[in-house]
């Protein structure tokens, strides 16, 4: 199991398109993915769960990955958030 902490830096937060991108990326890995923030935990492969978190810019989240490709998965998700999901 890998646990990382990362701050959401893109302007619109983990909503709509970024949420979709996150879930789509997570789904390409076999590992289980969980997002924790604001005392809530969500399944990182469920679009409804991720959108329901209402994660805004500057929120610090904890991403937990668990499975045979947990390392690659964790890295890919972290890179995606750090790259601001391609937003300006």
């Amino acid at each position: 199991m890998i646990e990382i902490q990362v701050t959401i830096t893109n302007t619109s937060g983990l909503h709509a398109r970024p949420a979709a991108q996150f879930v789509q990326k997570a789904a390409t890995f076999k590992s289980k993915v969980k997002i924790a923030a604001n005392n809530k935990v969500a399944d990182g492969k469920s679009i409804l769960a991720v959108m329901s978190m209402g994660l805004k810019q500057n929120t610090q989240i904890t991403i937990t990955t668990e499975g045979e490709d947990e390392k690659e998965c964790s890295k890919a998700l972290e890179d995606m958030i750090k790259s601001n999901f391609g937003e300006e």
């Binding site: 949420a19 879930v23 409804l48």
Partner: peptide, 26 residues
């Protein structure tokens, strides 16, 4: 939007419908 994302993950029809219907509670 929820259905499109669910479908993009390669989910089956029942899962896509369930996710779309789950959007009621957002």
């Amino acid at each position: 939007i929820s259905a499109v994302v669910e479908a993009s993950l390669g989910s089956a029809l029942a899962a896509v419908i369930a996710t779309a219907e789950g959007a009621r509670t957002l």
